[in-house]
Amino acid sequence: MAEPVLSIRDLSVEIPTRHGIVKPVDGVSYDIRAGEILGVVGESGAGKSMAGNAVIGLLSPPAHIASGEIWLNGKRIDQLRGEAMRRLRGKEIGMVFQDPLTSLNPLLRIGDQLVETMRTHLKISEKEAEKRAVAALEEVGIPGAASRVNSYPHEFSGGMRQRVVIALALCAEPSLVIADEPTTALDVSVQAQIIALLKRLCRERGTAVMLITHDMGVIAEATDRVAVMYAGRLAELGAVEQVLTRPQHPYTHGLMASTPLASEGKARLHQIPGAMPRLDAVPDGCAFNPRCPRATEVCRTPPPPRVKDGMAACWHPLVEDVEEKVS
């Protein structure tokens, strides 16, 4: 099989605080292949954005990569600094943020923002860049692109602005796109369109996508594989059908049961009791053990379980139900 576009190995991000070091990302590993969309889910504060920011080199200090490796197209990038990392951003890794209303510079025409981005990374003339800017807007479905390049961001609706943001993220043809909740701030009516657009463009170009979201509907609709994060760790990683329909980790199971999609028809949504631990108070062993109905002594003793060979990070995964009951 072809080498993955992105390969994260045992990645940890640390933040020194007054109460000691916290790890918003703790030993996370996953790959994303060309043309593949990996969904990243988990509760608020699980470390999804931190992991994405670590990959694109935009962790805001004092947060930093403490250990692990990040490989992009066979090159190790976690140790790149300053200028070397800047050249990758936009060119090799594109990023789409959550809120299109605030992602675009209000004082610059969108055409200028596109031209500027392309000319930073590609050796092309101003003329050529202007032509490509129009084409880029057409590609993301902006009607009247030829005249709209001269518009300012405030002249677009939220959904249209997110299309512009996507055009900007993709205009230098990166091989990886990190989309951090790209539809959360949008009207429900345009969410599906934006996801469909992202999916189409990345499939066409063979771009690898890290799609961070809370929305299980988006996961089911767009992704190929899913990574479930809990308290900075990977709880489960697998093909989308498997994670959605046959989750192994009790946390994933609870997460699915608590979303409207999976529990259609049921009168009330299932709630996982308790809350995700704060990062300065992660329990010993499995971080989920205080909330887990299946927890035993081994779950409360370090080291915590890790995702391995297609199995969830759990000592008592749900697939083993039958055997577990026998023993």
Binding site: L88, L104, E116, A169
Partner: peptide, 17 residues
């Protein structure tokens, strides 16, 4: 601190820009 500055950085624009 604004998002559009983060986004400008994420697009790999030079510090000067």
């Amino acid at each position: 601190r604004q998002d559009y500055i983060r986004f400008a950085r994420a697009r790999g624009l030079r510090d000067r820009a």
